[in-house]
Amino acid sequence: MELNLSSKKKQWVFAYAMLLPYVVVYTIVKIYPFFYSLVLTFFKWDIIQDPVFIGFKNYAKLLTDEKFWMSMRNILHFTALTAVPAILLGLITALIISSDIRGKGIWRVIFFLPYIFSVSVVSLLWLLMYGPKYGLFNMLFVKMGLPPVEWLTTVNMAFFSVSIATLWWGLGFNFLIYLAALQQIPKDFYEAASIDGARWYHRIWYLTIPLLKRTTLTVAILQLIASLKSFGQIYLITGKGAPGGKSKVILHYIYEKGFLELKMGYAQTAAFIFFLMVFAVSLIQLKISQSVEDK
C-alpha cells in the first residue's frame, strides 16, 4: 500500500495521524492530571479527607513563604553549576571517543555506564566518598598530608559536591546524543577539510561544532529541564537538605509539603508556580533556538 500525498491536506492528515498516539496517551497521563492538580491549588487538601475550597489563599501564602523562595534560589544555583558543564562534558567526551583512538567500544561503555545506576546507588557511593572522617576522599587526602575537605557542611560546598556527583552520573545521556549526532556528519566533510590543510582544532571549531548546533540546542533544553528537576541525589547526598535544610531544592520542598506535611493543595500551588517558571524559560530557549536555526 502506498501513500502518495500530493495534496497538502493529505500531508497534514498524515502528520496528525502520526502524532495521534503520542498526544492521546500524553494528554491522559500528563496533561489531564496536571489540570486536575491546578484545580487543587484552590483547595486545602490533606489527601485523606475531602478537599476544602479556599480560593487564592495558597497563592497568597506562597508569595511570602521564605522557604519556598529559598528552594527556588537553590535549584537555580544548582542548575547554574550543572547545566552548562553537563553539555560541555557530553560534547567533549563524544568528540574524544569519536576521534582516532583504539577501543572505542570499551570507552563508550565506560563513559555511559554510570548513567544506568539508580539514584540511590549513585548517592550512596558519593556519600561514602564524601564522608568527613571515613570518606574515601578525605582518607586519601589525609594520607597524602593534605587537610580534609568539608564536602557537605556548607550550602555552597554541598551544591558543589553534589554537582560533581551529578555530572559523573549524567554524562552518559548527553554523550550518547552527541555520539549519534556525530555519526550523522558525513566523513567526506572531514576529508575535504584536511585536504585543505585544516588542523584538528580548526576542524572541530569551524566544522563540527556548527554542524552540531541543532543537536546542542536539543541537548540544552533537555539538560536545562533535567537540571531544574533535580531532586533525588541532592536529597540523598546532603541528607535531606543539609546543612540544616538550607540546601533544599524546589522539588524537595513540594514533596515535603505534599506528602509529609499533608498539605497537598499548597504543594500543588508551589508545583504550579515552578512549572510556570520552567515553562517560560523553555519557551525562551525554544525561541532562541528557532532563530538560530533559521540563520
Partner: peptide, 21 residues
Amino acid sequence: KGWAVLKDKFKDVMELFILGD
C-alpha cells in the same frame, strides 16, 4: 500531628547548631 516532619526540623536545628552556626 506532624511528627514526621517535625523530627526533621529538630534534626536541622541540631545540625546547624553542632556545626557552630
